[in-house]
Amino acid sequence: MVDVAALPDALEEVAPPASRHGAAAWGSWLLRRLGLAVLTLWLVSVLVFVATTALGDPVRAILGKDYGSDKARVAELEAQLHLDQSPVTRYLHWLGGLLTGDPGSSIASQRPVSELVGANVVNTLVLVLLAAIVMIPVAFGIAMISANFRRRRPDTVIQTVMLAMAALPEFVIGILLVAVFSTTVLHVLPAVTLSAPGVHPWNDPKTMIMPVATLVLAVAPYVSRIVRATLLEVLDSDYVELARLKGIPESVVMRKHALLNAIVPGIQVIALQLAWLAGGVVLVEKVFNYPGVGNQLVDSVNNHDVPMVQALSMIIAGVYVVVNLVADLLSILLTPRARTAISS
């Protein structure tokens, strides 16, 4: 499942500064955007901290039934989580640690969080990047085919299939792929990623196929639906009509006049979907036991490993914010109207 409801309007934030020009205007726009990103991350950190430590009792959750009997362990955990201090002190201490690159150590394994997380971050980023590289041409291709047959039977069929696929939760897609390609129907691909600690999963490329395919199938329907809608809008415009009347072949019209104009909305929805992937990988990694941050996050939540969960959720939220920032920047750079609005 992918969320598409919240398409940010890139033009919304652009208030043309009246007197400044060029570089200065760009600088102030960029500063404002960066400031907002930092503010967002700070508020997210407050939310993460409150949710993990203040809403429930982590020590009670970790020990379960032993909470009443094992006083020594309770004291030990409380000391490790600094529960004797006030929440504000603990938060500031944690935030300071995050900013200096020391997010504490894991409760489950007693090793530093940064050491445990490092390799998994790389694994997840590679997975998401591969999914994006495959997804973009697939989504644009489907959108172009669909727009070519606009409102005729193939278009309707493609759109209904896309709508149905968009409804499927990512773990459902993943399990169905497993059933088809590795257990029930065929036995051609490995059902789970089995890699030794310290070895990256792409050393065995076969294990990457299904996680990447799952992410592509989960995301491509949204992107292709938006791109198709934009293509149709452009194909109805006057200048496309003029190009056709001039006798330009339909394939050139599609490529040069329509597709180029569909790229900016495309970038926005792709960015949103990439940002969404930061959360969506949690389930996909769990399905395939892929050694990434999502899988690690679920395990940490199961272990009630508060420092790990805090660090991993900040990483995921950070990726989300950065991707959105880059998308805003790209879509403004690619839209002449917005570009002039900023620098004039």
Binding site: L47, A51, T52, A275, G279, G280, V309, A317, Y320
Partner: peptide, 10 residues
Amino acid sequence: AFPQILLSLV
């Protein structure tokens, strides 16, 4: 800015 599943997990 918070992926949906993340809020629940946290």
